[in-house]
Nucleic acid binder design. Sequence first.
DNA 1: GCGTCTTGTAAACAACTGCTGACTTACCAG
DNA 2: CTGGTAAGTCAGCAGTTGTTTACAAGACGC
Lengths: 189, 189
Amino acid sequence: MTSPRRRDAAGTRRLLLEAARRRFARNGYAATTVRDIADEAGVNVALINRYFASKEGLFEACLQGVGNELGDAVVGVDQVPRIIARQLSGAHKGEHPNQLLLLLRSSGDERAEEIRLGILRSFAERMAAAGNCAPGNEDCLLRAQVLLSAALGLALLRSTTTMEPLTSADEHDLLAPLQDLFDALLPGR
Amino acid sequence: MTSPRRRDAAGTRRLLLEAARRRFARNGYAATTVRDIADEAGVNVALINRYFASKEGLFEACLQGVGNELGDAVVGVDQVPRIIARQLSGAHKGEHPNQLLLLLRSSGDERAEEIRLGILRSFAERMAAAGNCAPGNEDCLLRAQVLLSAALGLALLRSTTTMEPLTSADEHDLLAPLQDLFDALLPGR
DNA sequence: GCGTCTTGTAAACAACTGCTGACTTACCAG
DNA sequence: CTGGTAAGTCAGCAGTTGTTTACAAGACGC
């Protein structure tokens, strides 16, 4: 009755990763303790160091995961606002750890910061491309980065505050403002 | 030669507040230690508890300060983007602790959260008013909150990442995108 | 001068942090 | 069945955290 799934290295690794993603995204790096993560995963604390070497290593792994899952997204030209709206609303419901939020969480570690910045830059560039920016057009890239900032700020505010009607807005409610935002910043359509 | 300004309760209180505002804004609540703050202020650690009762109390005082200084801002209709741009660029240079960032920092404490939310809500409502929203128009308020999210996201991304051209953009560079953003979200002019 | 309140200092506390090492136990090839 | 190894457990370490306490010293009325 105790352990239906014991002795499963890959499984516990995944449990730790998911718990860490949730905790880091919701509370930030410093405010999250390894014991918090281990408890939420239902796993012994020492296994964090076994599988990820350190708390920093676990955080890096979380970022890697976000990078992989987001690597294929955002290609369609007109789908950018829809994708953002879905991410935001999906994240708000607890169904999935909010991946976008992790991109705003900093641990201070240099390697983790490299990963984080890499994802953010790539994301901004793909947004710029979706907005028909000419490669090398600095002003257009800046506008894409502003758009990215807006999406991330939205994710953060929705997850850490209670501010109606923003908090309760669903995917559909968010779509229209995001669409306007996209059209205004990247009118290259 | 040692102490030109010793024995100044109000002065050290102010030094602590300023140092705390900088640290909390830049690194967040959990990642900032009371010894960090005291060292940056050039003041003994114990005085934090003397003057502010606790780390939480100091954080609350920081939020109060932001609330007071931001209480009078944002009234002009067409000045919203300009004010935001100035805040963002002024904050980026180290001249002033970035007040906007503090509004994204959470300590978990309930009273501090009340203060933070109060400021944010008031800010959003004044933005909505500046956009000629009718009082009670939920959709218009939502758009103002999206605009606020964008500004805060911009502040956070600029302060915690290195992402050109966003990082080096000055007030003038930011004004045009922000103006478009404002016009798109609050076209009530 | 003395006495007292205020301001600042120093040391220490208990709790918590990430992490480690020695250990038990499940699993599986032989 | 059995030995070896991978997987998980446990207790504890060394350092840090916020906070408190006891003490030293300036400011000031008298």
